[in-house]
Structure formats: structure tokens, C-alpha cells
Amino acid sequence: MKALMSLGALIGVAGLLLLGGMVLDVVPSTYIRLVEGYMPIQMLLEVACYVIGFTGLSYTLNAMGMAIPRFWQGIGFWVFFLLYLKYRMYPPIPFSVRAMYGTVSLVAVFMWVSASEEDWQKFKQPIMNVLDAQTGGNRLLRYLYLVLLPILIGGFSFNAMMPKSEEPIELRTVHPAPPASTKVHGKTYTLQTSQNPYRVNPEGKYDQEFSNANIVEQGMGRLMKPNANPWDDKNQGYLKYVREGGEIFYQNCHFCHGDNLNGRGLHAFAFNPIPANFTDPGTIAQLQETFIFWRVSKGGIGLPNEGFPWASVMPPWEQHLTVDEIWKVVLFEYWHTGYYPRTWD
């Protein structure tokens, strides 16, 4: 047990040094890489490692007779987590999310330090000592707080009220609600029931399972499946349509959406927000194929007005492409990203 705790303490110290380095900009945030495809769970695992490390550290210090008071343990952990979010995570997390996480972690710290009466007494003892001011030091601290707290709160208020030159926050929603049906080139498509006419099996019938089996593999490599190369001239049917969709994509879409469909095309950074990243599991992977068909056809200008502002400059592609071409582009996007269109069965 002792050895385990010592190991934990070692992890805790190493982790703190690493984070300290990141805060002081000695160690880059990317020193330990966030691995694509595993980032979300990696973050949770890292924080879990820190918690284990802190447990070990606390145990070891306790055994050495240098126990950290519960008050400082609580405050220390909270500060650690805020620093972790600010300096370890990249790309930078927006303030709103850090504020949410900061509040949750503060509540969590409160729940921890007040879970039992004994812990709660230990935690609030330093606060009570300062309030009671029985010693000279505590009396001094009390006066300091009396002066500093109003200044601090006043400073926050001043900062909050001060006019700023930066653009205001927009509560933008990524997925606008589609209409029940859409009319493209004179034909009405019901979004709930329409199907991509090019998602077909060798017999020419609509077959999502067949197409799913031929898309690129998901994950880091995004490799093509064996015998499923659309650029092989011999391929017919689904894979041929994917190729045609790819040609249309690279002639029209990749300038903004990028040649890897990750929203980082040549012109992407001329826009704010940059174009949609199709490789993100939160975009086309969440949607029905007909939704994409509608979005491509109608573009930013055709978005419903109940969710303004949409901040989309995508042109209404129905003015430039045929219905068949739009369906093929959609087919290609799913093939290339390795995602499956959403279905409701």
C-alpha cells in the first residue's frame, strides 16, 4: 500500500511539475499530445491520473507528518483544475465552457469537503479562525480581507461593465431544423423519407448496408477498404458514383471544406466560423442524408429564419449543380469521412 501510494505521489508531483511548466510556458501544451480519436477519454483519464497522484501525495505527506490542511487541499484542487483547463487543453477552450467546468468543479470540491461533519469542520476551521481573529496574524488577515475583497469584487464589476471592443457572443446553433420537405429543381423531396438514389448495391437497389461496407475505415488512418477504391476505373455502381461525387466535390467544395473534408480548405480561414468539419462526429454523422441534401441545395441563404444568425456563406448549390450531382457529392462526403448517414429504423 505504501509503495503504491509513493508511486501515486510520484505521479502527482510529476503531473504538477508538467502543468507548472505549461502555465509558465516552459513546456508546450502539446508536449503530451492529444491523440485524435481518443481525445475526450484521454482528457478524463489524465484528470483521473492527477486525482490518483494527489491521493498518493496526500497520503505520503500525511505519513511524513506534513499533512496538507483540508482547506488548502480543496482550494488547491480547484485551482489545479482551472489551470489544467486553461493551459493543458488545446485548442483553447472558450471561457463559457471553462466557467461551466469551473463551477462544477467548485461544487464538487464543496461536496467533497463537506461530505462528512468532520471534514467540514476541518475545512472551515481556517475560515472561522480568520473570522474570530483570536491571534494577531488572523486579525491582520481579517483586515486585509476587509479591504481586499471589496476591491476585488469592484475590480470584477468594473471589468464586466467596461465597454469592450471585441465582437459580442453569438448563440449560434450548428444544426438548423430542416423543413419537412424541400423543393429542388421543381421536384419536392420529403426529408423524412427520401433516399439517395445513388446509394445502391450491384443490383441497383437502395442498400445502405452495402455502401456502409465500402466506405473508408474510421479512426486515425481512414484507409480505403480492400477492393473498394472508387478511383479504380473498373468499379461500377456505388463506387463509381462516389468517384463522380468526389470529382464534383474537388471542383466545387474543397476550396472551403478542405481536401480532407475537415473544414480547413484554402479559403476556410477567410470565414468566421470556418466551414463545417465533416470529419467531426458531431456534423454529418448525426444527420440524415436528406438533411445534407437540403443544406447543400439551399445553402446559407435558404436556412430557416427562426434560428438567426446562421453565419453561413455557403451558396445555394441548386443554382450550380443538378440534383444528381448534389446526391453524388453527399454520397462522397459520407464515403470519405467513414460515417454512415443517420437512419431511423
Binding site: L34, M39, P40, P91, I93, V97, D280
Partner: peptide, 10 residues
């Protein structure tokens, strides 16, 4: 952030 979706939190 470089896009609408954060690669970790998204």
C-alpha cells in the same frame, strides 16, 4: 479554436 467543434469537448 479553429472551428465550430472543439476536438476534445465537441
Amino acid at each position: 479554436m479553429g472551428g465550430q467543434q472543439h476536438p476534445v469537448l465537441g
